[in-house]
Design a protein around this nucleic acid. Structure first.
Lengths: 233, 233
DNA sequence: AGGAACAAAAAGTCAGACTTATTTGTCACA
DNA sequence: TGTGACAAATAAGTCTGACTTTTTGTTCCT
């Protein structure tokens, strides 16, 4: 999915990025470009490029006479897909997964409502196809095939919303879903009720029933929240 | 708010970033590092660092033997605050403003509901203070003072939600609100109904009434959507 | 026409010298 | 004793030039 090792500076990032997001260098830590360059066995030019990228993500700040300072988490660009991937791969994974699931619960219902208004015939067909694929693979431990259709379903919904910012969350949602299947407790077949909801959403979008599509999607995301024990007391 | 000219590469970015997001270089255009360096009168090293940053935002892609290719809008990191600022400053402003307002309409109600559960006493006090400040400046063309309290209000809500991804949207929402006052049609005093809603939200959050806080905030965001003529037919 | 060898182009990498801003420490003076 | 100015140290920032590597396009041979 990503682009591993697109140059030397990319490899440095693949190593340094996860280390910072994992809290290996606590906020306020000061690094020096020269030392980093030696440590990673690259030239200063390459190291500087890597630092610039980290700086654009607000993971670090580079100041003259001081060095490269690790920024507190509150400054990070937490929407940067790269940062999200680094956090999902590290110790911060559970926390990141919860944040993203709450984000989903806010975005997806609204996106589904918009999709009901704006989806093209082609997108509706794609959606129905995905839902059918989920049904077909919902029993008999075919989790991987189910996941593929589940990811595609949510990606189509977000794209069909017509809002570029929603559409851009397709990758993120896909990674959350994949994470749930691969890393979290997901040994059994998916909840039949959830599968039904997806089919109904596809139908509501096709029918142009925005309110219904939104409400049904809200039920799906509530289910996702409950899986992580995030709910109103 | 931002950091203008934090080095030579920063100035190059301030010039090249807006140009790309404004569509001045159409997707697929190929730039060459050396030519860019000459054009901006900087060394190749500086130019390379700037390109690396643009690449991390997925505005361009750098490939050997080909050059620096401008990416299609669908690839951009549209959540990067820097990219948002560049787009808001350029020709894409109206479109960007609509996208962000839709995003707000999805996020803020959920954030308010969470704030009702998680807000600290201090945050409740801050919220009430902001609401009162809005009331106090809601009449007599005190738009600037009103704006300050409005921005603070929404920032506190997002922060009090306890979700880091919501909290990170504080800056974005503030820029949308500021844009509405400064650039859009906003000559009259704010809508009294909207002011009342803010006061009621502050009260609902203090009372811990999540459902009410969510519903009231939804009404606020619906108002924002209507201002831009984004509504269900 | 198909494929292999070759040449050109542009990014990528490195090393070294030099510049500049910022901090810190020192010393004299009030 | 405190304070202000000045000097030194430091680490990032910048520039240049030489070299490497990958990719692409062309040409030539079968």
């Amino acid at each position: 999915m990503s682009t591993p090792g697109r140059g030397l500076h990319g490899r440095v990032l693949d190593s340094l990025g996860p280390a910072i997001t994992a809290g290996e260098y606590p906020p306020g830590s000061v690094l020096r470009t020269d030392e980093l360059a030696q440590h990673f066995e690259v030239s200063r030019s390459v190291m500087r490029e890597a630092v610039r990228v980290l700086e654009s993500m607000h993971l670090v700040q580079s100041r003259r006479r001081v060095g490269v300072t690790v920024q507190p988490k509150s400054a990070w660009n937490v929407y940067d897909p790269q940062v999200i991937r680094w956090r999902l791969a590290g110790a911060d994974r559970p926390h990141q997964l919860r944040s993203l699931t709450v984000l989903r619960s806010a975005i997806e219902p609204v996106a589904a409502g918009l999709a009901a208004r704006h989806a093209t015939a082609e997108q509706c067909a794609e959606l129905t196809e995905c839902a059918l694929g989920m049904v077909a693979n919902s029993r008999g431990h075919q989790l991987e095939a189910y996941l593929v259709h589940d990811m595609a379903f949510h990606r189509v919904i977000l794209a069909a919303s017509g809002n570029e910012m929603f559409a851009r969350l397709g990758d993120v949602v896909a990674e959350v879903l994949a994470g749930r299947t691969h890393h979290e407790v997901m040994f059994e077949d998916p909840d039949p009720a959830a599968v039904t909801l997806h089919v109904q959403v596809a139908e509501a979008v096709r029918a142009g029933d925005a309110a219904r599509a939104e409400e049904l999607t809200r039920q799906i995301t509530v289910g996702a929240l409950q899986e992580l024990d995030i709910l109103a007391p």
